[in-house]
Simulated assay, not measured.
Amino acid sequence: MKLTRRTRTAVALAAAATAVLTSVAPASAETYSTDDGADATASLTDMRKVRITHGTEKVSVRITYPNLKKRGQAIQTVYLDKNPDRRGPEFALTTPLFSGSDYALVRMRKWKISSDGPIDCAYSVDLRWRRDVAVVEIDRDCLGSPDELRVALRMKDLHDGSHPITDWLGDRREFTGWLASGSPAA
């Protein structure tokens, strides 16, 4: 069978496209999403929906609340664990969930904050009052660029000072499953 010039060109382009598509697997972030339910209903800052994304450049945690307020007493902590052989997380980012506050990423050991002080690297907290959402983003370099990590979340509302309300994602000190960075898209 004799191939025409047009057919040879089409076959060559198809082969090149197939080679490119099969040699480069699309990388995307591994994501964990869940509903937390109304388990801390005495607080306006009860975690309801959580989405954690472990990308190739950053870790992003998006938490939806039923009624996030600019004035309040609630504090949110994102615990990050990258070493399954050590007890507890290696890092935590704690942020008040109200206006005029500051946040910090710190090192942890056995669920306690180390005395090193805040880590100097790129991380942010964005409190979106009108959408009732808190978004935490941490560069993976801050965490030593782990291939996998898992996350635990806690909200603590000190609304009356004597009866704090605590809301963990899942059970107390329970982590998500391990999330790989830049997993191939399904």
Rank of each mutant, 00 (worst) to 15 (best):
T4G: 01
R5G: 02
R8W: 03
A10V: 12
A12P: 02
L13E: 12
A16W: 13
A19T: 12
V20P: 00
L21S: 06
Y32P: 02
T34R: 11
A38S: 03
T45P: 00
K49F: 01
I52M: 12
G55L: 10
E57G: 06
K58D: 07
K58W: 08
S60T: 15
G72K: 04
V78Q: 05
L80V: 12
D81G: 10
K82G: 12
N83G: 12
P84E: 00
D85V: 10
D85N: 12
R86L: 15
R86S: 15
S99K: 12
Y103E: 00
A104N: 05
V106Y: 01
R107M: 07
W111M: 10
G117H: 04
A122F: 13
D126V: 13
R128L: 13
R140M: 14
D141M: 12
D141Q: 15
D147Y: 00
L149G: 08
R150M: 13
V151A: 04
V151F: 03
R154W: 13
D157T: 03
D157Q: 07
G161K: 13
P164L: 04
I165H: 01
I165D: 07
D167L: 05
L169H: 02
G170W: 10
R173V: 05
E174W: 00
T176H: 12
T176M: 13
W178C: 07
